[in-house]
């Protein structure tokens, strides 16, 4: 589960499915790990997983939707594809609402499955990139003092120095000083850089 090769995690309590679908995916060139118990899978999932997970819906102990929710809390960047032998419209809607990439019926066509896995991989890449940007932005913003963060937020929202000074009840001179410190600490060269950082860190 380490390295940079994307892994397809196949979580299904049924041995026929694990064996057959696992083999098919391997033959199609994917690295596959199979799990017969969703709890074991959740216990082993890394913090920043590369790849995706194919979940069965009906499993004893913990069903697919519950597993999906737990997974979102553990590793939100790992996309989920459902593969169910007894899916209902309600469970399908719920799964998609919870962010599933696709909801497939067993037995699923090999190409359809493959397309879903590719889509999930792409989603995984996007999510990881966004998370990395966010982490970087958070790290930069973390350097700011509280007051500097206030100034940063207001300036990034497009308030002028004097408006910011009014809102924070400090003088415009002070705002200028804070602002130049913010630019320096955030390694930003221009206002657009600041705004971008604010968006990435979720402050604006």
């Amino acid at each position: 589960m380490t390295g940079t090769t994307p892994v397809v995690h196949l979580v299904d309590d049924d041995p026929s499915v694990r064996r057959g679908v696992g083999r098919l995916l391997q033959v199609r060139g994917y690295t596959v790990e199979t799990w017969d118990d969703p709890r074991a899978f959740l216990a082993a999932v890394p913090a920043d997983p590369i790849g995706c997970v194919i979940l069965d819906l009906n499993m004893p102990g913990m069903d697919g939707l519950q597993t999906q929710l737990k997974l979102a809390a553990l590793a939100a960047t790992l996309p989920v594809v459902f593969l169910s032998g007894r899916g209902t419209i309600a469970s399908c809607a719920e799964a998609l609402k919870q962010g599933a990439v696709d909801f497939l019926e067993k037995p699923a066509d090999s190409d359809v499955l493959s397309t879903a896995v590719e889509k999930a991989f792409a989603r995984n890449r996007d999510l990881r990139a966004a998370a990395a940007l966010r982490a970087e932005a958070d790290e930069l913003v973390g350097r700011l003092t509280e007051r500097e963060r206030d100034v940063f937020r207001l300036v990034a929202r497009g308030f002028t120095n004097s408006e910011t000074a009014d809102l924070l009840d400090i003088s415009a001179e002070t705002v200028k000083v804070h602002r130049s410190r913010v630019m320096k600490k955030l390694e930003a060269d221009s206002l657009p850089d600041l705004v971008l950082l604010a968006v990435q860190s979720g402050l604006a």
Binding site: D14, S16, V17, R19, G20, V21, L24, K106, P107, S110
Partner: peptide, 11 residues
């Protein structure tokens, strides 16, 4: 039936 069928199809 779908479980073993999925296995058969995939295999």
């Amino acid at each position: 039936l779908n479980q073993p069928l999925a296995g058969i199809a995939a295999n």
